[in-house]
Simulated assay, not measured.
Amino acid sequence: MTRGRLLVLGGVVAACVALVVVYVLQVRHAGQVSAATAPPVATVPMGGVLAVPHVVFRSTTLGADYGRLAAVPLSDPSGPRALGGVSCERVYATASSGVCVTASGGMAPTYAVSTLDAGLAPTASAALAGLPSRARMSSDGRLVATTTFISGHSYASASFSTATVIRDGGRALPNLETWTTFLPDGQRLVAADRNYWGVTFAADDDTFYATAASGGTTWLVRGSIRARTMRALRTDAECPSLSPDGRHVAYKKRLGNPTPGVWRLATLDLASGAETLLAETRDVDDQMEWFDDASVLYALPRTGTEATTSDVWRVPSDGTGQPAVLVPNASSPAVVAAPAAGPTPAAVQTPEPRTTS
């Protein structure tokens, strides 16, 4: 390449870099202005909220409290909120405990999963490898599942790798990639590019549902913790969430759309195999949470200059009705329909060394 062409190429690259810098600075400035002009958030004591049925979530109100763990009573989900003492990338909670996936700042961020007590205060933590994506607990708080991105930044990436680990009473079990997965034809899934994410637990502390993926295909799988096995139930189902009565699974699906990362919400009747598309027609990239046996919750980012803010929406699980905001300025919801009671689970421990299958 001639010196002249190199100079031209260098000029183009410099111009592109300059445009990117200007765009980033504009977005940052817009966010700072929005945060500075945002009205103060009305708050209430955490103890009073936890004593009644409530929703725990990650606050997305711009300002100093952005990312903080928060809770509101189910009787007034859009009203004053209680704020916890930790900031989370994902959060989940039960009547007796909680889990908070954290991220540190800086050029080389670090990630961890923290155990929370009945008052949603951290008690212990363990390091996580990769960008936090999903976190779930069993209803009794014994089981905790986390998914992180080891490479790539989202499920919409053409190439990504995840690490999904279940902790039983604080003890980290091997990465799900080392467990045995059977495909619908009975063959084992052994492809090197297999990934797993989006765990949801049944009430027996053994059965769980998750997503398995390989070669561009995703499967809804049902697993057994004791047997260390998973079996594929159907294709095109991601980030499952089991209903409180254990009869339905909610998930996102692509509807045959070849564009990566474009999803519709659906529910599956586990007994009949009937699938229902929900009334939410926008693209939702989230693991749903059941509000009750008849409706689900999910986070949806706003658009434009408010893209860093999201709201928690609610929609019926039978395909009827219309979506409506339940908790504004919120994400990662967890419904806790009973006051905190009983002992807290064992503390999270450092993950075991990864083995290969």
Rank of each mutant, 00 (worst) to 15 (best):
T37F: 01
Y111A: 04
P109F: 03
T281V: 05
Y92N: 15
V101Y: 13
L74A: 07
H153N: 11
T350D: 09
T146M: 04
T110R: 13
D185K: 00
V52I: 03
V336C: 04
A210W: 04
V165Y: 08
D269F: 00
A124Q: 11
W219T: 14
D65I: 07
M1W: 04
L278I: 02
S97Q: 04
G11E: 11
N195S: 14
D292C: 01
T235G: 15
M288N: 08
P122D: 02
A158Q: 09
P122T: 01
R354L: 04
E280I: 00
V315Y: 00
C16M: 13
V49S: 12
P39I: 02
A38H: 01
T60F: 02
A70H: 08
G186Y: 00
Q32I: 03
V165R: 14
P109K: 10
H29T: 11
A266M: 05
G105I: 03
R5K: 12
T308P: 05
R142N: 10
P77I: 03
P45I: 06
L277T: 13
A191N: 06
C100F: 07
T110C: 01
R226H: 11
E89W: 07
T115H: 08
R226A: 15
T123E: 06
K253F: 15
L7S: 10
T356Q: 09
M107P: 06
P301R: 07
R226D: 09
D283P: 10
R254K: 14
T60A: 02
P109V: 05
A338V: 08
L83W: 03
V262F: 04
L176V: 01
R314D: 11
E89L: 04
L128M: 10
V27H: 09
P122K: 02
G130A: 10
A172V: 10
D292W: 01
T303Q: 12
G47K: 06
P258H: 04
T60D: 09
A14Y: 13
T178K: 00
T181Q: 08
S151A: 08
S151W: 06
P73Q: 06
L19A: 15
S357K: 10
A145V: 07
L173M: 13
Y92E: 14
P80F: 03
G98I: 08
P301S: 05
G105L: 03
G67A: 07
L233K: 07
G4I: 04
M1C: 05
W179D: 00
A341Y: 02
